[in-house]
Nucleic acid binder design. Structure first.
Lengths: 164, 164, 164, 164
DNA sequence: TTTT
DNA sequence: TTTT
């Protein structure tokens, strides 16, 4: 289908450490459990209530897997932007089951660390974007600002993967 | 939890007519099936491929249910903005099952019709927002623009519900 | 025009304390300066570069003004969601000038504090949403989750303003 | 700065045909004027009001420039996703002036045509994404869906630029 | 299972 | 003028 958009934006905290698994072909997936929650006052009782939603996030992008693995821990606050995907699988009894995840893979996927609490090393947080930007031409006036900022949105950590 | 965001944005087409059900208490839910899809060229074979994702949308907001019921049909293109929610339920064998939906309910939920195909009447499409805006004060200079536009994001169709 | 969306999402830090001004009619506006920035490696020189963008945010929503005033300070990290608006004004020489701002006003505007650094009091951060949610009906099965969470996205702080 | 997000999402109609200019170095920029508008009922007078906001969009991404040039026309409805950027320039009298635009350039920028009205050819609309996806590894089970959809969000039109 |  |  032409003309569609599939976008999920979450800001929340990890319920546990990231879990990374490797595939036979060398690829990796990193799974996160992210909690979002909201408070409201019950219309009838007037009492304050809270509801927490747990989200399953699957990161396939190599650079973002590296960031998640290295810098995120249980309790970390993150901004993630990805796509909704539902997978079909079979349970032990052979029945069809479905799991819906927020998938970070390829273009437009983003992972931004929002605190430094969980970092073991000296890295102080940082944005990492799925597939790096870059730009097919250098621009001159009248867009000097862009000219001097060839790939403003490119992720820092993926640089070695940007195929220029 | 303080400080979280749970947002889904979809632009896609309805796979079938909206389905509306009523609750005992007079409330309604409207369920949509929305398709988004993407094309890419296979890295290995070089052939063009397409993948369609189907999303379950549940609208609880009274005004948006009315809009969906009245103006959306199979094939309609829509922009929806809501929240990810996973419900737990029991199948016939008593096993726990989970369904993840995009829920439009309350603050920040939006439904925007993007074509006129499905409209039976003269209504030419329009944005409808969950719970209307409104503003607690009238503003004067230097924000004349806002002053004259007290509730710029308010939906048109919910007006009778906006407590001005 | 029917069928349009105007949405800005920023995550960044305040460059200075929030500035609140009052209007004659009792309304208030709170102005924020929010920095976002990005890093990239220059394609030609290979050196690391950074570009910071400064955003002007104007909050008209009463509840959000209160939150910003009370909890945000220079350096605070925030998530804001609002609309792009361009105002026309005259400079001293009578020439037309234009200023573009991210406006938080009414439906769909959001302000989420992402750190606790700036809080003077005991309030530990929290999401505050423009105009509170609420729900026009109580729902029963089969959407028990929603039934027990009537207005999941409603802001906590605005509750007294929700007109039920 | 680490940890920031700068995102604008618009759905609206072009007020005039796209304007494309070339730079000395061969780069191009395509400027769009996009209208979004909203309706509301005046709190005081009760009358229906409308406010239209005009947005300046600058597309630097080569593939998206091509799409805009070829398929968009005055009146076309589009979804755009880009970044807020403010440029400084000097007017004739040498005074500093600022212009804020929605910039589509590099990672995360998106342009989706939402109608077919403006197309001269047989192309029925389509999503086009800034810098194509692609994936650094092939995935196997248990994520078969992803395995067979290596770059789900890649744009169709940029394919010749995707460096596989 | 997070966070406040 | 923030932040890392």
């Amino acid at each position: 289908m032409a003309g569609s958009v599939n976008k999920v934006i979450l800001v929340g905290n990890l319920g546990r450490d990231p879990e990374v698994r490797s595939f036979q072909n060398g690829g990796k997936v990193c799974n996160l459990r992210i909690a979002t929650s909201e408070n409201w006052k019950d219309r009838n009782t007037g009492e304050r209530r809270e509801r927490t939603e747990w989200h399953s996030v699957a990161i396939f992008n190599e650079g973002l897997v590296r960031v998640a693995e290295q810098y995120l821990r249980k309790g970390s606050k993150v901004y993630v932007e990805g796509q909704l995907q539902t997978r079909k699988w079979q349970d032990q009894s052979g029945q069809d089951r479905y799991s819906t995840e927020v998938v970070l893979q390829g273009f437009g996927s983003t992972l931004v660390m929002l605190d430094g609490r969980s970092e073991g090393g000296g890295y102080g947080g940082g944005q990492s974007s799925g597939y790096g930007g870059g730009q097919s031409g250098g621009y001159s006036e009248p867009y000097a600002a862009q000219s001097s900022a060839p790939a403003p949105a490119s992720g820092g950590i993926d640089d070695d993967e940007i195929p220029f």
